[in-house]
Amino acid sequence: MRKSSIFISFILGCTLTLGLAFLDALFQKAGDLPLLRQEIKVVETLQLTDFCLATEARHTRHPSQSDWHSPFQSHPGALDHFPSGAIIQPPERIIKGHELPR
């Protein structure tokens, strides 16, 4: 068999597999839809604001609700993730707060 035939078959095989991955993603998503709907429902009824990813401190359990001054924070509103918070300024919008348009 020609080398190019082998290679082209290989690439086609890989592309097909990638296509299957897309298909799998679609199926998984369809399968997860009821779950997602349920999660949305939970957020709505319990009026939740955050994911339960890190429960250890309030600025990690409820990053969207935490104080502007929390441990190791370099600036009110800075992202609370070492070392990013120490390096990158928080977005302008967060620093400014809410003002009425003049």
Binding site: L36, E39, I40, K41, V43, E44, Q47, L48, T49, F51, Q65, S66, D67, W68, H69, P76
Partner: peptide, 23 residues
């Protein structure tokens, strides 16, 4: 994607009281 989808049902406006820079 999951965050934006699931948290789309979060209250649209929350008001906290701040005292001396703390909730």
């Amino acid at each position: 994607k999951e965050a934006s989808l699931v948290l789309s049902a979060t209250p649209e406006l929350i008001v906290q009281k701040m005292v001396a820079g703390r909730h």
